[in-house]
């Protein structure tokens, strides 16, 4: 395997977007939610719908940093039989169809630890994943998975938060790669939204310390919010609002195709907030 392959895919995407003077839309979905078939159809259509980068959640029984929407998505996916192995298969399947859209795996440490850290890193790279966001591995635990990931050529995407003070920011950024994910609120996913001015100040503070692109997420729900944050950040992450489209579809007993189309339509709206739509450029 070529350890540089992952690095290049994410960097190229950000370079291209920068040339187009546009921020990236990062869309989060949970692997296997509401079932493997529907989730796969949603995933495959995301780039066409307007996603520049994909964040794929690896389901966990105890998602402590997530709000109700993503908690339920995790439960639905687990109930429908998702496993970490099947999540990696989903990645490989996606990569076979799309060689260019970066895909980041997001989740919690325990399923990876059970799977075996090095085995997981090897399988994630060969499946075509570009990076990891692991919520419960702060810099204090970098010897667990961060160092082996960076050695293997898988991006380690750091979370910084409003509680990360200046002294700590340097440490948080130290082993980060790919991009930096700014969690814009002190809270869980899909709840409150941050004030735009606070986001601008925080992003500026991070930019002083790193050349990595800065993504902003948590509480971003509408195309208007996407457009506002895009003015300050290099990428905008939307998760719970997309997941809620799936939940609403299930609630109204919509068919699978209808749910998939609903999600893609919503992603299109969000991308509209960023101006020109992603067109699968090489």
């Amino acid at each position: 395997m070529n350890p540089d392959a992952a690095n290049r895919r994410l960097a190229r995407r950000f370079e291209r977007l920068k040339r187009g003077n546009r921020a990236a839309l990062v869309t989060f979905i949970t692997a296997g939610d509401p079932d493997l078939e529907t989730a796969t159809a949603i995933l495959h259509g995301l780039p066409e719908a307007g996603a520049d980068i994909i964040e794929l959640g690896m389901p966990f029984s105890d998602p402590m940093a997530d709000g109700p929407a993503i908690q339920l998505a995790n439960q639905r996916a687990l109930k429908a039989g998702i496993t970490l192995r099947k999540t990696l298969d989903m990645v490989a399947d996606f990569r076979a169809r799309d060689a260019h859209t970066p895909l980041i795996l997001m989740g919690y440490y325990n399923p990876i630890y059970r799977y075996g850290n090095q085995r997981f890193i090897d399988h994630a790279i060969s499946a075509g994943a570009d990076g990891l966001i692991i919520v419960d591995l702060p810099p204090e635990q970098d010897d667990e998975l961060c160092h082996p990931c960076l050695t293997a050529g898988l991006h380690w995407i750091r979370l910084t938060t409003p509680t990360t003070d200046a002294a700590r920011l340097a440490r948080v950024l130290a082993n980060g790669s790919g991009f930096v994910y700014y969690v814009s609120i002190t809270g869980i996913t899909g709840t409150r939204s941050a004030a735009n001015s606070a986001v601008q100040t925080a992003v500026a503070r991070i930019r002083e310390r790193t050349d990595l692109p800065v993504a902003v997420g948590f509480g971003v729900k509408t195309a208007e919010q996407v457009a506002q944050i895009a003015a300050a950040a290099d990428a905008v992450v939307v998760g719970s609002a997309i997941i809620e489209r799936i939940a609403k579809g299930l609630e109204t007993k919509a068919g699978k195709e209808e749910i998939v189309a609903g999600v893609h339509g919503f992603v299109g709206e969000l991308a509209g907030g960023l101006g020109s739509k992603n067109t699968q450029a090489r």
Binding site: Y109, E140, R158, P162, T164, D165, V183
Partner: peptide, 20 residues
Amino acid sequence: ERGHFGIFGGRFVAETLMPL
């Protein structure tokens, strides 16, 4: 000093909580 008893223990929490 890092909170480990052998390989057990540690501080596996989200960044938001880490400073606290």
